[in-house]
């Protein structure tokens, strides 16, 4: 496993795109977060922590690209056959990829969230004064947002392993993330509305960002993140099975 980790780390580290994508996660997350905070400067939009972390909805797309390319790139170049020849236990390869992608996203996520919250505190002058990581719910929102990005990365990795084609995998991942809120908006049955929000990886997962008005949440913060965790675990599991059963 240690060698497999080293191999995956070397591959991802030496790809020209990786550093750019990680920088993109931080930049785009912060950019949208600051824009949302500026738009909410006078009212705070109800929940300063959630407002300052709006950018996660943007940054997750870049995380998805990074994770998908870690697998899809190998399939498109045929590199995957070399990888499996070197490390014949395919589940080990997937696990190593998950660890390396997860670790990279974790680092980028911490940077993105820290800068977003600090920028939010600065921009949301009036309401933002309350925005401090020493505050329990805000800390939970920040940590949860980092974990959210990591889980989106793992979900993308799993989907890419199943789908193998990078473009299709990105389509599936972004569809899973973005379509639930849109469908929920046109469903008028309150039970179905709540059900859709609870199983939606994005809506449920981002419940972890809420710091005010917790009663209105469709699902409790950590349970919501757990929903995304289940999606990620399911995708990795199916990916692992597909790797074992299919030819490379």
């Amino acid at each position: 496993m240690k060698e497999a980790l080293h191999v995956e780390w070397t591959k991802l580290r030496t790809l020209a795109g990786t550093a750019w994508l990680l920088a993109g996660v931080v930049l785009l997350t912060v950019a949208l977060g600051v824009t949302a905070s500026a738009a909410c400067a006078d009212t705070g939009c109800g929940d300063p922590a959630k407002t300052s972390l709006t950018g996660i909805a943007f940054g997750q797309a870049v995380v998805a690209v990074l994770a998908v390319l870690a697998v899809g790139g190998e399939y498109s170049t045929g590199m995957i056959r070399v990888t499996f020849a070197a490390v014949p236990r395919r589940s080990t390869v997937l696990a190593a990829k998950a660890v390396v992608v997860g670790a990279l996203v974790l680092v980028a996520g911490v940077a993105a969230v820290l800068v977003s919250v600090m920028a939010g505190r600065f921009v949301l002058a009036g309401d933002g004064a309350a925005l401090s990581l020493a505050d329990g719910p805000v800390f939970r929102a920040a940590v949860g947002s980092v974990l959210y990005l990591v889980l989106v990365g793992l979900l993308s990795l799993g989907v890419a392993t199943v789908v193998r084609d990078a473009a299709a995998a990105i389509g599936v991942v972004l569809g899973l993330l973005y379509l639930f809120p849109i469908v929920a908006a046109v469903v008028s049955d309150p039970d179905w509305f709540k059900r859709l929000q609870r199983i939606s990886p994005m809506t449920a997962g981002l419940a972890v960002q809420a710091t005010t008005n917790l009663d209105s949440l469709p699902i409790s913060p950590w349970a919501g993140l757990g929903v995304l965790g289940l999606w990620a675990a399911g995708a990795l599991l199916v990916g692992g099975l597909a790797l074992r059963l299919r030819d490379a």
Binding site: A36, A39, T54, V62, P181, I182, T203
Partner: peptide
Amino acid sequence: VTVVIVAIVLPYILAIASVL
């Protein structure tokens, strides 16, 4: 794929279902 999906779909989601 990411650029185009994010450019078309994400603003719509932010507009209909976010804090904005």
